[in-house]
Write a protein that binds this DNA or RNA. Structure first.
Lengths: 196, 196
DNA sequence: CTATGAAACTATAATCACTATAGTTTCAGA
DNA sequence: TCTGAAACTATAGTGATTATAGTTTCATAG
């Protein structure tokens, strides 16, 4: 395998890119429901069949990267955390710099994020992508805490962390919301002890 | 408004029931994807347009009750809990007797549950229905703990509790799985304190 | 009792996402 | 250079869902 892609893969990537760009532009202009896949295919100058060959999950997947990078970030954030730092702290810091939790984004990415947050179908699909990483995240957490990755507690924690973007993403102060949720996961629900 | 429904509403309920029954029967026989809405409409002896008039959310909604009962159970479980019992304990007990967490069900309900658990589209829709109750549950929780229903911590707890059926429902020992998750929510994630 | 309007229902046609088929072009590698 | 796989195309189909326009059925005000 070559270090640089052959012409073939380059063209494939080009087409994929053209589809992403066309979709993002049209969605931004007319809203997600105001655009048909046919329009997107036209705009990218490919056939509808080709469009679906590139995005097996359908219309929503058009503006998302195909790669599984989403999961990798969190897993390496856990592995490479400074010694003494808790797993949850590492996850908290990692999430804080990404997605809906930072304003420190180039304008095109911000437009994209706003589109996703403002479109239920896209929010849902985004969640699906995040949750697809549950297994990997659970394994990483388990490795650091000497538990079994199949332990329901581990799986639940992974799931709950991955749900945070959808849960806190729409809040006005999304960063504060995220921190509140992490506090809950770290310390549990504070219930006054029963008095008799 | 009368105590007994007029003929009109009775017929409407009849039609809805016929649709539910037809859908459940056909889904059980041929699988969710093996049945078209046209077949269901035929079986229930109504037109396709009528079918959709009864289930605004589409095919998946056919076998679910339209009512908002789901939420009510949990909310009253919180309100009417024995004094001294924690909110989470009340929720835990309430969930334990329902859905995927008990084998103590009549065979028809069990068949229905297995169908839902075994069909991704139906699982997803079921989750959507549960989550629709997040607001109500958050209010109930807030009322019992002197917090604001808009508090992110309260909303997150409500959401996480409502996710439990989907999260633990597919486990072999779903009841044990559910308990493990409640323990996590009550006590938080046990992380050894950093050593320096 | 009856007229009237709303609600439930119908058939029909359309839209749209998505899939299947079969054939064409284009690149990679033997 | 030959060959096969991969990417692409047009075309036609399936299936869910909506829109339209008209019909039947019930509730109820007069």
């Amino acid at each position: 395998m070559a270090t640089t892609m052959g012409r073939r893969e380059r063209k494939k990537a080009q087409t994929r890119r053209a589809l992403s760009d066309a979709a993002l532009r049209l969605f931004s202009e007319h809203g997600y429901d105001g655009v048909t896949v046919a329009q997107i295919a036209d705009e990218a100058d490919v056939s509808i069949a080709t469009l679906f060959a590139h995005v097996p999950d359908g219309k929503e997947a058009l503006i998302f990267d195909d790669g599984a990078d989403r999961q990798v970030w969190l897993v390496t954030a856990i592995r490479d955390r400074p010694s003494g730092q808790s797993v949850l702290e590492a996850l908290r810091r990692c999430l804080a710099g990404r997605g809906p939790f930072t304003e420190d984004l180039p304008p095109d990415l911000r437009r994209k994020r706003d589109l996703i947050v403002g479109t239920p179908a896209l929010r849902e699909y985004s969640r699906k992508l995040w949750i697809a990483g549950e297994g990997a995240l659970a394994e990483a957490i388990a490795a650091e805490s000497g538990r079994d990755p199949v332990d329901m507690t581990v799986r639940a924690l992974a799931r709950y962390v991955l749900e945070i973007p959808e849960l806190a993403g729409t809040e006005a102060d999304s960063l504060a919301a995220m921190n509140a949720i992490f506090d809950l996961l770290e310390s549990g629900w504070p219930e006054p002890p029963m008095d008799a």
